[in-house]
């Protein structure tokens, strides 16, 4: 059963008519994690935003996007709003701009949950606190009373993952969630994503240009270049025998670094995927 089906997605700039994503089709099965990789400007984020219908003004898209067989493009903006968060949950790259800067984190989370579920305030708080502890935020009450600028990038990323845990969406879309983090924090956040998948069993789209992270988390990989899908397949196959020269180039530049590192560390056990 495919949770999400994207068929012939085209994204273009209205003013210039420039094509940004061309004829992109892929599907996401229940519980699957699909990674979208590619350089900046290859159309990864545009694809995600088109699914969420969050593209900024002046960017248009066409094609069929179906969630559990239901065509999302015929939904009104109001109906689509109810889907965002509850059914399709997006985790952004920059936590600092993903939260309302003028209110404490807790107020924002309460509001989001209040829209989607008719739980009492105490219920919402209890669920949030449990989720925060699950993602390694040890003092949920303190975190909820803080403003976004008072938390580090890694903590904000965890708060977003905690919110996804409570919302239990059908599809989670994570757009470069580790790119703005330092290596150690990125490692911990990736571990949280792995556990999030285990717990919710929801499908996930994971956008990244870091192939190390992709190898750790993804079942399938979709490679984009200049707005087109150049290759898609099982993660293992992409890493061992990519067909497209561009994919091979991406994989080999990552391999050079990690092989050198492993050689230095004398083959001792480093985090592997």
């Amino acid at each position: 059963m495919n949770v999400l089906e994207v068929e012939h997605l085209n994204v273009w700039e209205e003013r210039s008519g420039r094509n940004l994503v061309r004829d992109s089709s892929f599907r996401l099965a229940q519980g699957e994690c699909l990674a979208i990789v590619g350089e900046s400007g290859s159309g990864k984020s545009l694809t995600c935003k088109s699914i969420m219908r969050l593209n900024r003004n002046g960017i248009r898209h066409s094609g069929r996007i179906a969630l559990n067989g239901e065509d999302l493009s015929i939904l009104s903006d109001k109906a689509m709003r109810r889907y965002r968060g509850r059914r399709l949950c997006m985790i952004m790259q920059n936590g600092m701009s993903a939260f309302d800067p003028s209110r404490p984190i807790g107020a924002h989370l309460q509001e989001t949950l209040g829209i989607h579920y008719d739980w009492s305030r105490a219920e919402r708080e209890a669920k949030l606190a449990a989720a925060m502890i699950a993602v390694g935020l040890r003092e949920p009450a303190a975190v909820m009373s803080r403003y976004p600028f008072e938390l580090s990038g890694g903590m904000l990323q965890r708060v977003m993952i905690a919110l996804a845990l409570v919302l239990e969406p059908d599809v989670i879309i994570a757009d470069e969630p580790t790119t703005a983090l330092d290596a150690v924090t990125a490692y911990e956040v990736v571990e949280q994503f792995v556990r999030l998948r285990e717990r919710l069993r929801s499908a996930m789209i994971f956008v990244s240009h870091d192939l190390g992270v992709v190898r750790r988390i993804a079942d399938n990989v979709l490679v984009m270049k200049d707005g087109e899908i150049v290759e898609q397949g099982a993660a293992r196959e992409i890493f061992s025998g990519a067909r497209h020269p561009y994919t091979r180039y991406l994989v080999s530049s990552k391999e050079t670094l990690s092989r050198h590192y492993k050689w230095l560390m004398g083959g001792v056990d480093v985090a592997q995927g």
């Binding site: 290596a183 750790r216 590192y261 056990d269 480093v270 985090a271």
Partner: peptide, 17 residues
């Protein structure tokens, strides 16, 4: 590979290769 301090060891272990 022969770093001594526990922090350095942890740091090197948490590399996503």
């Amino acid at each position: 590979a022969n770093v001594q301090s526990p922090y350095a060891k942890e740091l090197l272990r948490k590399v996503i290769s």
